[in-house]
């Protein structure tokens, strides 16, 4: 039957979220019993309160402009981070001199606290550009690290074959190295998409560009609108997951048929 497969998929996917929703409901109930009154809404709102807040938000025009503005900033940061990370990986893997020069800088970026970067970039680039730059800076080391490991792991026998069969450098890169990097690119993109959202929204909370998810989250804290805080967080998580799925789907199309 046509409907059994989607039903099976739904039954497979449903239990875990249902379990965690139940845990949340129980926690909210427990807090409600201990604190009572509006204290419950301030510390642990019920899932239904968050749902209501979300439905109210989605109905407004502001919601979509906010989401699109943040999505644009973070996607731009993600794109630049991937591009720069890939270029750096190629440079550090192709020249030991570049590796000695650039690797320490990338490692510093990876280790430094994101808050320090946000404040510095805010001073240098202004509030509008900071979230995108921060997303790019957080994504860059992840992409660099994964792609560097991938480039070093390309089968030397395949590279020897490419050399013997007179592949040009470009042809070797496109036909041998790039497809061999696919699993590393997949890992890099999955991690990078989540990091871009986390760091980008954190930067928005500190810089308050208009309109932005970070600004909305900041004001929910300011006005103690905790259900809205949960709702905006859920929106951020959903956007992050959607972006990751989109990137994975693109790569899945690229690798279709290889294993069969």
């Amino acid at each position: 039957m046509g409907w059994t497969k989607p039903l099976k998929k739904l039954l497979y996917a449903l239990p875990a979220p249902a379990f965690w929703l139940g845990v949340w409901q129980l926690c909210a109930f427990w807090v409600d019993r201990r604190v009572g009154g509006r204290g419950n809404e301030l510390q642990m709102p019920y899932p239904i309160s968050v749902w209501n807040a979300l439905v109210a938000m989605v109905g407004t025009g502001d919601f979509w402009s906010t989401v699109l503005a943040s999505l644009g900033r973070i996607a731009m940061g993600l794109g630049w981070g991937i591009l720069l990370g890939a270029v750096l990986a190629v440079l550090t893997c192709s020249s030991s001199w570049c590796d000695r020069l650039l690797s320490p800088a990338v490692r510093v970026i990876r280790a430094a606290p994101v808050a320090s970067f946000i404040l510095l970039v805010l001073l240098w680039a202004g509030r509008g550009r900071t979230p995108a730059i921060i997303s790019a800076l957080m994504v860059l080391p992840v992409v660099w690290d994964n792609l560097s490991r991938g480039i070093q792991a390309v089968d030397p026998r395949l590279l020897e074959m490419a050399k013997c069969y007179r592949f040009s450098r470009w042809k070797t890169a496109v036909l041998v190295s790039l497809p061999a990097l696919r699993p590393y690119i997949l890992t890099a993109l999955s991690t990078a998409a989540g990091l871009a959202w986390k760091s980008g929204v954190a930067a928005e909370v500190l810089c308050l560009p208009k309109p932005s998810l970070g600004q909305r989250i900041y004001y929910t804290k300011y006005y103690l609108e905790i259900p809205e805080l949960f709702a905006w967080t859920a929106v951020t998580v959903a956007l992050s997951m959607a972006l990751e799925r989109l990137l994975r789907a693109c790569l899945a199309r690229w690798g279709r048929g290889w294993g069969r």
Partner: peptide, 23 residues
């Protein structure tokens, strides 16, 4: 010269025909 290696060294992501047109 053209060498056939002891191991196949095929590219898992290229079809049979593409292996030939690549060369």
């Amino acid at each position: 010269t053209a060498i056939l290696f002891q191991d196949d060294r095929l590219l898992p992501w290229r079809t049979v025909k593409q292996h030939l047109t690549d060369v």
